[in-house]
Design a protein around this nucleic acid. Sequence first.
DNA 1: ATTTGCAATCTTGTCGACAATTTTGTACAT
DNA 2: ATGTACAAAATTGTCGACAAGATTGCAAAT
Lengths: 231, 231
Amino acid sequence: MNGIGASEGGDPGKEIASALEQDIVLGRLAPGEKLREEDLAERFSASRHHVREGLNRLERAGIVIKERNRGVSVRRFTVDEVRQIYEVREILQRQASLMIRLPADAGAIARLVEINDRYENAVEAGDFQRIHETNDLFHTELFRLCGNELLLNLVKNYMDLTYAIRGSAFGHRENLETSRRHHRIMIGLLQGTDSWALAQICVDHIQPTKTQYLAFLEGRPRNGDEGPGPD
Amino acid sequence: MNGIGASEGGDPGKEIASALEQDIVLGRLAPGEKLREEDLAERFSASRHHVREGLNRLERAGIVIKERNRGVSVRRFTVDEVRQIYEVREILQRQASLMIRLPADAGAIARLVEINDRYENAVEAGDFQRIHETNDLFHTELFRLCGNELLLNLVKNYMDLTYAIRGSAFGHRENLETSRRHHRIMIGLLQGTDSWALAQICVDHIQPTKTQYLAFLEGRPRNGDEGPGPD
DNA sequence: ATTTGCAATCTTGTCGACAATTTTGTACAT
DNA sequence: ATGTACAAAATTGTCGACAAGATTGCAAAT
């Protein structure tokens, strides 16, 4: 019944952080929700110490907020913060994609095609877990081609942050269709030499969810705290 | 004799991490040097627990490396890693400066002038600690004008990382002179409307130390471990 | 009926001690 | 003399218990 299904070889704090991040991404933990250490310790059958470490990790990733002597809760973002996050993502993805030498290596393209196949299968099956997984992998492998590992990690971090803040609430039919189309266009562009077009699609790719999520947030601006509704 | 001079109101781990970062920046801790938890605990008259937390923080900032059951040591960067770090810095600083609305707010410019005065005084006095401090502040206030707090933090993080990896070993006469001149040019450009020129100087500003540091690293590539020299 | 003060309870923060692992030092065999 | 096996020391990793602080519930006074 514990949430850590994978191999438990590594750092316990890391495992717990990943599991909690999954929970947030998949919408099982809502923004504003409080995370009590002891509960988590029991759930993961780990010591409170490790849970603490995991929560620290999540705090530094920016997806959770920690108030002294008041515990941690899933971070609730303001409209402005969301806008800033997407702004950074656009910068990072544009610049990273511009650094990809075109035409790209054939082996890399083949790998991306294979990953995208798995992505499309997951979309067909409606398996959110695997959709997120393969989508993540696709972008990781794509931006790895920029040749700068550090930049790749930055791109990944802010991509993960985006998933965390909006959950998979916007992974609806039409979005997934658009995503699928974008991925195919990207693969096509990797075979050509038009870096600018590739950069453009990499930026365009994140616009739909950005627009929808911002509209969603602005649609209900008067929420002081609606998570723990009184009665 | 402890390294924490400032007000000790906040998180102990944070204070310790800052103090250690200072040590690294000012060259009191060389790359590859091992950091034993108990020593640090005694030096900061804190519990080993807090030292541990501080070291975790430094590890996540990327300026220290932690090997399981083998302790942490000041990270030693490869030439390629350094190159990647500067590449990211260039991207971040260029994009951030391009987002500054020109001409900039008069109050902000006045603040920068005042900070730069203090910087020049510190340079005159040869006070490395204050040089680093005011230089940091100058860039913080400059890039704050980009209007994106998140991006500002990214710029700061990678600026700090750069200071950490090369220490203040390259804060020599000529560099400091060039820095001073760059700062004045930046202030001048903030009053005009040429965003591109501002972006260019923001990127040029970090070239001297980058070039020198890379030359230094490539000059002695065969160092397996020279830190703890035998006898 | 509302508000203020206090006490009980719950949650997080901190510490010291013990366990697991690596490193170092030494003796022995080849 | 060199290399290997084993024991001792040192260092990090983990845990449970206690301390400090915050929240909640209740009672009494206005």
